[in-house]
Structures are given as C-alpha cells and as structure tokens.
C-alpha cells in the first residue's frame, strides 16, 4: 500500500479523537495539558507493565490462558492507575477552585469537570491508539501490506486500526463515567468501567482463534457502543439535574 493507505489507517483509528480534540480540547490550554499528562500516565503504566512481563515474552505457546493472565493483570493495573489519576485530579480540582475563589471567578462548572474527565480519557485513548496501532503503521506507508495468520481476511493494519478505534472510544468515555462515578460515589458506575474494560480486553482473546476476528470485532464494538450510550445517558441525566437545580 502507499502513503494514502497509511494515512487512512491512522485516521481510521484516530479520526474521531482528532475531531474531538479540535472541537473541544484545543480551545482550552488546560485541557491540552490534561490530555498530555494523561497520555504520559498511560505510557508510564504501559512501560511498567511491559517491564514486568518482559521476562516472559515472547510467549511461545499457542494456549490462550497466558494471554488471558496478561490482559487480566494489565487491566487491573490500569484500573488502579485510573483510581490514582482520580485522586490527583481531585486535589487539582480543589486547587483550581481555590484559585478561582481568589480571582473572584466562578468555580468549575459541571461541564468543566466533565471536559477535564473527557480530556483525561482522550489522553488514555490516544495513547492506546498511538502505541498499539499508529506506531506499528510505519510499514503501511511502504509498498506492501501485512496479514496475520489468524485473521487472514483483512490486512493487519486495518484490523488493528479498527480495534484501536473501539478501544479509543471505550477509554475516552469510560473516564467520564468513572470520574462521575467517583464524584457521586455511585458504586454502579465505579464498577461499570473496570468491567467494560476487562470484558473488552478479554474479547480480543477471541482473535487468537482462527478467523476469530470476524466474531471478536463486532462484540468489541458492542462494548464500545454500550459505553458510549451509558456515558451519554449519564451526562444527560447530570446536565438536566443540574439545570433543574439551578
């Protein structure tokens, strides 16, 4: 394939994030900084994970369970990181509110908080797409393409871009759900996020089977859409509550 194909794959994975970035994030410097730091946090978590797993790689077996353990540990660790991220954010929010009081401006609005959560989630999502999909795309800009054995119908780059898109969606919006859940102390939301993340990760195990990606990817997209709808409902509820309270 050529440059066009490479750009196409990249946009497939990151297109929605780019438009989200341009429309919402880039207008506010603080959100850009949030996005960058969240990307960095995700990168550090990935480095730590890979440091732990480095000794066992590459996995020679074709059995699925080592991969299952890998994904399980990774998801658990990343959800732990998310809780840490929330703690830091909470302190930051207090600082921002104190600052707002000092300059006699209104405190953070509900939508501001949601935008910060969105920026944080987008940072996680973009980091995911960048490291799992975009950084492997270099050969796609050349004149060939690549197929993996287990999913021989579609080029590897296309599959990974499609999967990355699903994960970007999940990461982005589950951060909004999680932050809201922590803020409201709602157990359901707090549990929803790790479960979705874990299920989505486990669904990719289906790809290990021959031709499994035909089944796995639609299921993955089901999870992504579920996250999207859940997040939309939650934001709508919060906003209307907020409106009526005012």
């Amino acid at each position: 394939m050529t440059v066009a194909a490479g750009i196409g794959y990249a946009l497939l994975a990151l297109g929605p994030s780019v438009s989200l970035f341009v429309a919402v994030i880039s207008k506010k410097p603080f959100l850009i900084l949030t996005l960058l730091s969240s990307t960095l946090v995700w990168l550090v978590s990935l480095i730590v994970l890979s440091g732990v797993w480095r000794a066992f790689l590459p996995l020679e077996t074709t059995a699925w369970w080592p991969y299952g353990i890998l994904i399980l540990t990774s998801v658990v660790f990343q959800e732990g990181v998310r809780v840490g991220f929330w703690r830091v954010y909470k302190r930051l929010e207090d600082m921002l509110d104190a600052f707002a009081d000092r300059v006699a401006k209104p405190r953070l609005f509900l939508t501001d908080k949601m935008q910060i959560a969105l920026a944080g989630g987008l940072g996680h999502g973009v980091a995911h797409a960048v490291f799992f999909c975009i950084s492997l795309l270099t050969p796609a800009f050349g004149s060939a393409t690549f197929y993996v054995e287990k999913c021989s119908q579609i080029p590897f780059f296309l599959v990974s871009a499609i999967i990355a898109l699903a994960f970007v969606t999940i990461h982005t919006f589950s951060m909004v759900i999680a932050f809201n859940g922590y803020a409201e102390k709602k157990r359901v939301d707090q549990l929803f996020v790790p479960i979705v993340h874990l299920v989505a990760g486990m669904l990719t195990l289906i790809n290990l089977a021959n031709g499994g990606c035909i089944v796995g990817i639609p299921l993955l997209y089901f999870m992504a859409i579920l996250t999207l709808i859940y997040c939309g409902q939650m934001v709508w509820r919060r906003l209307t509550e907020n409106q009526s309270r005012r």
Binding site: I47, L49, L57, L59, V148, C151, G201
Partner: peptide, 24 residues
C-alpha cells in the same frame, strides 16, 4: 530514559501482543 525503556522493554511487549491482535 524513556527512549531506552521503550526500546528495550515496551517494544517487544507491544509488538508481541498487538501482532496477536490483543489489546486492552
């Protein structure tokens, strides 16, 4: 530091998982 960590630790990990189409 990040360059060498990425090169030595992360790359085999990421390439290993994502060429098996596993992500999380």
């Amino acid at each position: 530091i990040f360059y060498f960590l990425t090169r030595l630790l992360m790359e085999p990990f990421v390439v290993g998982t994502s060429t098996n189409l596993m992500m999380f």
